[in-house]
Nucleic acid binder design. Structure first.
Lengths: 290, 290
DNA sequence: TAGCAGATGTGAAATTTATTACATTAAGTG
DNA sequence: CACTTAATGTAATAAATTTCACATCTGCTA
């Protein structure tokens, strides 16, 4: 038994850099369900981590234990100590930081935002939005403002792969009226507009609606004035202990939407993605091996 | 495996009266250090309780398990559920939707990602990163790739307000070598590199490091190869039930970072923000009244 | 691209662990 | 108090787990 008073989890994390590929995989599996995963048979842990038995054994020995049973004994000892300890409270997200640390305060707020936003959302509206976006008979225009265009672009980058006929319009550029020229009746407009609602975005939405566009609005809890023009309105809480607002919750919605639309269009998308892969291969954009 | 949803501890207590002398002794030993005691070898538990092996086995079978390993498996399952529970067990995030709805599945995964990422982060490293970024003696270059540049730009848009000398470099453009020309020794590079690590980003980071840049890496749980070049590495989990990864957790980190840097620089930032407000007023970019 | 060092997996051997059969002890009953 | 029944422990057996030695693979360097 090593003499340090660090927990095994801490030791694994601190030495993470010195680990090999398979060992990192294993380390993740151990930490994933800590400490339960390490208390089962070696073979089960190896299987869950996708590595071989001896890899587990070598890592355990690297950590300073004589063997796997020895390792388990210390895990149990930790568990015993933790359960006995009255201050086994989990309200700290970043365990190493005090509860007043910004990491904990901020995360707390974001989780709270997510909880409230999800509780308020109408699943029917969400599904309807996804269905609209998945309708390839119509074009999709994604609109964002000064800050929110990052979210808009993120959605755009994914939608671009999933379906044809997707454009990204930045309301804070001078060229957006040109983009509207190409829009037809029945086109879908996904508009992002958060606090400090922008005049340009509002005007854009008005014109889009006037031209027969169907507006899906992603906004904050107070709702952009655009919501009167919108067919579907998805709102999220965005307040955090910061001078700025948090886009984490809207991002969660957007990502969920991407996943849902992708699922609806999978048969068509599949081919698009394969083609894209080939093109990426040819440009050698990504590393072949992790 | 019994079909009840009582914990083993509860079942032992409820049936305590029907137990024999040796079994009561054993029950006490199990509950004394629950669940650690039951996770070791049968013989150890028997010894600690002062009973024989077969007594343990018979009791375990009385509880409805096929054998001792079966009993242990359920204990581990309980432990796993318990560790997950305090935060994530919100069953249905979107109350109107069934638990299998993508809104609930996705949110569950993201919360889990946040929990794991925060548990693994070293607050010291995070603080150090913020301190580096808040050092206005050096320039800050924010680097992102094909997808991650949205995150990079989001950080850039805020940092631009908070402090001078901030630039945004897209590694997937042809112009990044030009941007590097202006970099000096000691400049800070905040590099975003997530799965499908991009060759361009790696090259950029290498050149930046070679020119004396100090690299802060924001990456995923498997870590971009850039981490060997980086002074500080912040990693997040990004796996969700989708064909793509989730940037929600990294975004949380970025936003927290923005808040922390802002706090460090508040005295200097204040004036910058007031000036910015005036300029926005003049452009009538935002609506005066919500 | 050839060769090398380190990492990883395979399958057999060794060890530990769980289980069974049976002997022994204790408790309860007429 | 003898007899019966249930409870418990002992020691042998069976099953599993851990560990080891070696072969293969991977990634790096010259």
């Amino acid at each position: 038994m090593p003499s340090t008073d660090l927990t095994i989890a801490e030791r694994i994390q601190s030495g993470f850099d010195t680990l090999t590929r398979a060992e990192r995989q294993l380390a993740h599996a151990i930490l994933e369900n800590y400490p339960a995963s390490g208390l089962g048979p070696l073979s089960a842990l190896a299987r869950d981590a996708g590595v071989s038995g001896p890899t587990v054994l070598r890592m355990v020995q690297k950590l300073g234990f004589a063997g796997y049973p020895d390792f388990q004994a210390e895990l149990r000892e930790e568990l015993r100590a933790k359960v006995k300890n009255p201050i086994a409270k989990y309200d700290n997200w970043a365990e190493g930081a005090p509860s007043g640390h910004i990491l904990n305060r901020f995360t707390e707020a974001v989780i709270d935002n997510i909880r409230h936003s999800l509780a308020q959302i109408e699943p029917g509206a969400f599904d309807a939005a996804c269905a609209l976006i998945a309708d390839t008979d119509h074009k999709v225009h994604i609109v964002g403002g000064r800050i929110s265009h990052t979210l808009a672009e993120y959605l755009f980058l994914h939608m671009q792969v999933i379906r044809p006929g997707v454009t990204h319009i930045r309301s804070n550029s001078t060229s957006w009226p040109h983009d509207l020229l190409d829009a037809r009746e029945g086109d879908i407009f996904i508009v992002f507009d958060m606090r400090r609602y922008e005049n340009n975005t509002l005007k854009l939405a008005e014109m889009a609606a006037a031209r027969g566009g169907r507006v899906i609005l992603v906004t904050d809890q107070w709702r952009s004035p655009i919501h009167t023009l919108s067919e579907i309105c998805l709102s999220s809480r965005i307040v955090v202990p910061s001078a700025w607002d948090s886009l984490a919750t809207p991002l969660l919605l957007v990502e969920t939407m991407i996943s849902a639309v992708q699922a609806l269009l999978w048969d068509d998308t599949r081919h698009r993605m394969e083609t894209l892969e080939e093109m990426f291969d040819q440009t050698k954009m990504f590393r072949k091996f992790t």
